[in-house]
Write a protein that binds this DNA or RNA. Structure first.
Length: 415
RNA sequence: CGGGGUGUGGCGCAGUUGAUAGCGCGCUCGGUUUGGGACCGAGAGGUCGAAGGUUUGAGUCCUUUCACCCCGACCA
């Protein structure tokens, strides 16, 4: 992509109404556009980041036999009445609307009931189980207060997966597999080291749910973690969990964290509430064991920004960055050679953000750094004269001068 | 929803005791520049969140309202 064709413009100052670091940087660098409180649009750059996050999740969900589908944002009132969750007193984040004939509709804040309702059409026999479906979907939640930039919006993208089983044991086994898949996701996002599987409140169906919590100053939760980080407990269930696990609370230290995933088991309760059953080998109707697995895609993006930046701007992990490489041309000969190199790399299937604008070097460097592209190739007149390219790592600032063969060699290793 | 704060060109801001708006960045044009967000000159762009009121006169005062931010509550 040529920078001259990218419509975004970077800003030196963040809008004064944004305090959250993630929103400030993402707006300044041209990744997101704020539409209203808690509602952000994603530019081509921002979309590439989201897609990278989604692709990692997609690969990991597919690896545990998840089948991708997509549900709808418009939901039927009847779907939610079966579990009593249409009531605003029960679910206080509903956005509701009406058809022109006054039929009430809900805008999806969750898809638990919706997925189950759909699956009852297909899951009739024990032969149809287990099965697991997931989607990337925009959730709409009428939060009383949006905050923290893209970390807590009224409209956000979530990956939600649902697994259906004939037995609690089968559900447990699968659940544990998904925990491992989730860990791989966070590792690949580049935040695995600071992300913990955490005991959290279980709600109506199970004693504890599991949250994936990433240590992050901008987070809203407090986590208690033990010495070797093998146990993490959300403050909200600290007493219960400590008792249950036989842990001395004094050995746990509090840290601030952000919830980047939440998984839990419904048992057969949801199935029974909704009257959804399968037929077992003996021809008897049986309730379905259900578990649910969520990752906040847009929140993950926000957490990454919160954790990885410096005074110059964003620092994307390689797997997440919209482009791994940016190419900066300086001077006339530098530009001619940069044009040539851009074509060469593009032809070789290597995606590059090429800053081909007629701007001064300082402007281009500052933009590349603000955008957080992991590597920068600088092609200048003096580089051309020396037959060298400059490769700079965003994170460390380390620079090396490489000849053409060495550069290509290096890039193939990075890709 | 309770408390606090803020709304002036795209962004950041100034506007004194009321006299119908100014600066920086960005943008356009011309020129000089070109390894860390250049410089000079010339321009375009706002009626001051909105509505109502006081006044000869309101960005400045009053009322209402909307939006945004922060703290709290809330957060399968």
């Amino acid at each position: 992509m040529r920078r001259s064709n990218l419509f975004i413009k970077t800003l030196k100052d963040a809008p004064s109404d944004e305090v959250a670091k993630n929103a400030q940087l993402l707006i300044r660098a041209g990744y997101v556009y704020k539409v209203m409180a808690g509602v952000y649009a994603y530019t081509p750059l921002g979309l590439r980041v989201l897609e990278n996050i989604k692709q990692i999740v997609r690969e990991e969900m597919n690896a545990v036999n998840g089948q991708e589908l997509i549900m709808t944002n418009l939901q039927a009132k009847e779907t939610w009445e079966t579990t009593g969750r249409w009531d605003d007193e029960v679910v206080d984040v509903w956005f509701k609307t009406k058809l022109q004939d006054d039929t009430e509709l809900g805008l999806a804040w969750s898809h638990e009931e919706a997925i189950m309702e759909m699956m009852q059409q297909y899951v009739k026999s024990y032969k149809d189980l287990p099965t697991s479906v997931y989607q990337f979907q925009t959730k709409l939640r009428n939060e009383l207060r949006a905050k923290s930039g893209i970390m807590r919006g009224r409209e956000f993208v979530m990956k939600d997966m649902y697994s259906l089983h004939t037995t609690a044991e089968d559900c447990d086994t699968y659940y544990d597999k998904v925990i491992e898949a989730y860990k791989r996701c966070y590792d690949r996002f580049g935040i695995g080291d600071s992300t913990f599987v955490t005991f959290a409140s279980g709600g109506a169906f199970t004693k504890f749910s599991h949250e994936f919590q990433t240590i992050c100053d901008a987070g809203e939760d407090t986590l208690y973690v033990n010495e070797d980080s093998s146990v993490a407990v959300n403050e909200e269930v600290l007493d219960d969990a400590a008792a249950e696990l036989g842990i001395d609370k004094a050995e746990l230290k509090p840290v601030t964290s952000a919830e980047v995933g939440n998984i839990f088991k419904f048992g057969t309760e949801k199935s029974e509430q909704m009257g959804i059953y399968y037929t077992d080998k003996d021809g008897k109707q049986q309730p379905i064991y259900l578990a649910s697995y969520g990752i906040g895609i847009t929140r993950v993006m926000g957490v990454i920004v919160e954790k990885m930046s410096d005074d110059k701007g964003l620092i994307w992990p390689k797997n997440i960055a919209p482009y791994k490489l940016c190419l900066v041309s300086i001077g006339e000969k530098g530009s001619a050679e940069a044009d040539r190199l851009y074509d060469e790399l593009t032809g070789a299937g290597i995606e590059v953000l090429y800053d081909d604008r007629d701007e001064r070097p300082g402007t281009k460097f500052a933009d590349a750094e603000l955008m957080g592209i992991p590597y920068r190739i600088t092609v200048s007149d003096r580089g051309v004269a020396a037959n060298e390219y400059e490769l700079t790592e965003r994170k460390s600032g380390a620079t090396e001068n490489l000849n053409h063969a060495a550069l290509i060699d290096k890039l193939s290793m990075l890709a």
